[in-house]
Design a protein around this nucleic acid. Structure first.
Lengths: 163, 163
DNA sequence: AATTGGTTGTTGACGCGTCATCAATCTCGC
DNA sequence: GCGAGATTGATGACGCGTCAACAACCAATT
């Protein structure tokens, strides 16, 4: 009798765990994903009183004509589902950053409009936020690394989108 | 009079915005950070009834002698602050995945112990979770890219740790 | 015009994460 | 020993995010 595949003869098929290089990268990714958004949000809140979620919506709103975007489209722009968007818009409306208006072409829809206070908030927040992104991310990366990251991230995103 | 620095003579110092390459990478990073944890958690919940937060704690607990770790140390292992850990342990205790015990050496401290149900849960969840990480991440990246990512992530983390 | 099916947005429940606060305890210098 | 200051962990309030359920509406077919 051949004594082959001793390792794979274990009770159940032993899965293929991460090797050391993979584990190191995975660990670093988890750390990065915990720390980078956290440090950026702490600064954003401290300097401008805005959360990452606020900022995510204020940017596309501030770039739209009249600061007016349909909810469905706003959700698509930031990659959020409807419920998430609705909750966040509700919170921001309470603070006077945006207002909801009804949608003329589609009575189901709703429009989100940036208020003057909302525009003032994003304009005050943007310079230091961009500076922070630069400080923590782009200042320590080379152009070659940026290209590799861009391609790698894109490939992972494509893979996810395949589902 | 020299007509230099026309651009920088604008009303207030115009901040240095992201150039096109930087914006593309930043955008891809934000997308990745939204999508990758989400798809992994959806699978984890569906296949094993565990959240990413559950999994994060179950891994170091399952590797510790007797599945017993002091809270302070568990927090350090996963990079969480005390409050976050306490809340999560509380939720997991309610579901019978862990139990809290008092700490012999330090009366302030508390110990977290993996229950048999907790060990069963992580052992059932791990193979398909690792397979999912492989499917979405490592299967689409080359070894060279892994090295670049590891170095780049590490440098960003070092920068954050400088604060 | 009525039915059927998909789309749009809101809501409530609940898990997750941070912050501020608190009580208990340890540590260290005196 | 004792007191000042630091550490450890728990808690409540609140913002964030997902899911399931729902109401309102549109579009296409008959």
């Amino acid at each position: 009798m051949m004594r082959q595949h001793l390792a794979s003869v274990a009770r159940v098929d032993e899965p293929r765990w991460l090797d050391e290089r993979e584990a190191r990268v995975w660990r670093a990714y988890l750390d990065l994903n915990r720390e980078l958004p956290a440090v950026l949000e702490r600064r954003l809140v401290r300097d401008s009183g805005l959360s990452n979620a606020d900022y995510s919506l204020l940017v596309p709103l501030s770039e739209a004509p009249d600061g007016l975007v349909r909810s469905r489209e706003l959700g698509a722009m930031v990659g959020w589902e409807r419920s998430r968007l609705s909750h966040q818009v509700g919170r921001m409306e309470k603070r006077g950053l945006v207002v909801r208006e009804e949608c003329a072409e589609d009575a189901r829809g709703s429009m989100v409009r940036l208020t003057p206070a909302g525009r003032a908030a994003i304009e005050a927040a943007a310079p230091s936020h961009v500076a922070a992104v630069r400080r923590y991310l782009f200042d320590v990366l080379t152009d070659e690394e940026l290209d590799v990251l861009g391609r790698a991230f894109g490939r992972v995103l494509d893979r996810i989108a395949e589902d």
